[in-house]
């Protein structure tokens, strides 16, 4: 049974899923290190898109440079976010308070507050409507392969995601920063005792996670032709869903679940009206939390 339309939808779902995966990794890294949910991650995604857009309208550089700009702004946003919304609440250094319930809820609220402020500021500056993107930067040029038709953006998404996922694996496994991140995620006190600078590692985590998010934002903005201040909310929630489904601290799990989520959404929208697509993610979220509280692939976790 070879249904062209169906395959097409699957490929679309896969490319959206990869975007969710890039965002979910940011969530997962931060959750792993601090056990907190970063509600402002969606805004980093938006900042990435807007930084790229500004670069395009002001300088019109080649796409490669635009991506670098988004990358830089993402790193900056991650750094600032950690400083403003998370650092002030880590008043105590011992492990119990570093991952305590009170800090989790305080930073949940503070990152939420920061995300509101950032989003609304963007609306004040740019207006809440979709921004116009110069035609030549839109990643919508059709490429035909047999009966299937893809947009060039999809190839970019595939290529870039794979490069970034691979890069991240390399970073985590083979660099000092990556080792520190994994050590702090495992046991912050232990990491501190063996001489790892926890504060710097936390910042590095935010910077890396936010960079991935910002690039995801830029590419999606160009691929869907939709850059607007509130663009980060829905992908943010979906990336969060992917993280929960994947078992919270497993990057691989989050990526797989993000792909499943993207495809499930694409399939739903091909059967129902566009608006119901969002429902899929939320249903997945509630169902996962209720029935698979340790994520789809098992794995230990404290009490939810």
């Amino acid at each position: 049974m070879f249904d062209v339309f169906f395959v097409q939808q699957l490929v679309n779902g896969l490319s959206i899923g990869l975007i969710y995966a890039l965002m979910a990794i940011g969530f997962t890294l931060i959750f792993g290190v601090l056990n907190v949910v970063n509600f402002a991650h969606g805004e980093v995604y938006m900042i990435g898109a807007f930084a790229g857009l500004l670069a395009i309208t002001q300088l019109a550089p080649p796409l490669f440079a635009v991506i670098l700009v988004a990358l830089a702004f993402g790193a900056l946003a991650g750094f600032g976010l950690e400083r403003i919304a998370f650092r002030p609440f880590r008043r105590f250094r011992d492990e119990a308070s570093l991952k305590s319930k009170a800090i989790r809820e305080a930073t949940l609220l503070s990152s939420l507050a920061v995300s509101i402020i950032v989003r609304e500021l963007a609306e004040k500056i740019f207006g809440s409507n979709m921004q116009s993107i110069p035609q030549e930067y839109l990643l919508l040029k059709p490429i035909e392969i047999g009966p299937l038709s893809f947009a060039n953006g999809q190839f970019l998404i595939f290529g870039l995601s794979i490069v970034m996922l691979g890069g991240l694996q390399w970073l985590l496994k083979h660099t000092r920063v990556g080792l520190s991140i994994r050590a702090v995620a495992n046991n912050p006190m232990g990491a501190a005792y063996v001489g790892i600078n926890t504060e710097r590692t936390i910042i590095a985590t935010f910077v890396i996670g936010s960079t991935l998010g910002a690039i995801a934002g830029l590419i999606v903005g160009l691929y869907q032709g939709a850059i607007f201040p509130a663009m980060g909310f829905a992908p943010g929630v979906k990336a969060f869903v992917a993280m929960v489904m994947g078992g919270l601290s497993s990057i691989g799990g989050a990526v797989v679940c993000a792909l499943i989520l993207g495809m499930a959404e694409a399939i739903t929208t091909s059967f129902f009206a566009q608006g119901w697509g969002d429902l899929v993610a939320y249903l997945f979220l509630v169902i996962t939390l209720v029935f698979f509280p340790t994520g789809l692939f098992g794995g230990g976790r404290e009490r939810v």
């Binding site: 949940l108 939320y282 249903l283 509630v286 939390l289």
Partner: peptide, 21 residues
């Protein structure tokens, strides 16, 4: 059964399900 942020996020999901509906 959920506690803390898991409950918070589950209610976010419920609220959005209602809104989307």
């Amino acid at each position: 059964r959920l506690i803390g942020i898991y409950f918070a996020v589950a209610t976010l999901g419920l609220g959005e399900i209602i809104h989307v509906t």
